[in-house]
Amino acid sequence: MADVSVVSFDSRHCTLRVIDQPESWSLGDTLGNSMRSVGAIAGVNGGYFHPDFTPLGLMIANGQPQGQLTRSSLVSGMLRVRQGEPALVWNSESSSTSGASDLLQAGPRLVDRGQPVAGLNATKTAARTFLATDGKHRWLVGVVRNTTLGGLAKMLATPDLIAGMRVERALNLDGGRSTAFYARTSDGREISQPGWSTVRNYVAVVPR
């Protein structure tokens, strides 16, 4: 059975930020410290990175680009934030980074037009991290432990998985040992599930 940790938010009230974490060997509460530094209410691990700890694909954090735009079956989409409005963009649609304050290439795509993307692996089980949106203002940020890519895609495409929300698009982020989840409740209590390995970046949900 899959273990799910997820936060839902409205992009009219919150947005997404890419948080760079350039230290390849970090000690202490790196996840919590990164989230607290930007006043995040939730966050997860971000995109893939090379053995030398440089981003795999393009990353823009605080308006500063790192890495380079990549097109592959693995890195097949991106989170792009313009003027505070997040969007999931597929490689086949646009490679424009103009005006992006935050951007993170990742993949593979999980859900498109409300349907699970075909051809995803349905046998390899691992912890997974994802972003999902209804294409309007509703978003999901979360991790699922013990699932396949195909299984995660089918789960996210399930009607009314979250009451009143139909997932239009979903994108996989770096998972496995990198899987990490953070949330802060309205009374200030923190829920922190740090990953087992140091990651290059995080995706944070922050108030607008």
Rank of each mutant, 00 (worst) to 15 (best):
L31S: 10
L88C: 12
V117T: 00
G77V: 07
H50L: 13
K154I: 00
P207M: 10
T70K: 06
P86Y: 03
G135Y: 15
T158K: 15
L131I: 10
Q105W: 01
V7D: 00
T148H: 10
V38S: 02
G107I: 10
Q64L: 09
H50D: 11
R71Q: 12
A40C: 07
G99K: 02
T70G: 01
G142S: 12
R189I: 03
R200H: 06
G46A: 06
L74I: 14
G67M: 04
A106W: 07
A42S: 08
S73F: 06
T30C: 10
M35C: 08
H137F: 15
D102K: 03
G150C: 13
P22F: 06
C14F: 15
M155Y: 05
G164A: 13
R71H: 15
R184N: 08
D187M: 13
S37H: 07
L131V: 04
S34P: 00
V206H: 08
C14M: 11
M35H: 05
G150S: 08
T185R: 13
A87T: 06
D3N: 14
F9D: 06
V6P: 00
F181A: 06
G67L: 02
L58G: 10
G77N: 04
A118I: 05
I60G: 04
A183Q: 11
D3Y: 14
P51C: 02
Y48I: 10
G99W: 06
A204E: 10
T147L: 13
L56G: 00
S96L: 00
K154R: 15
R200M: 02
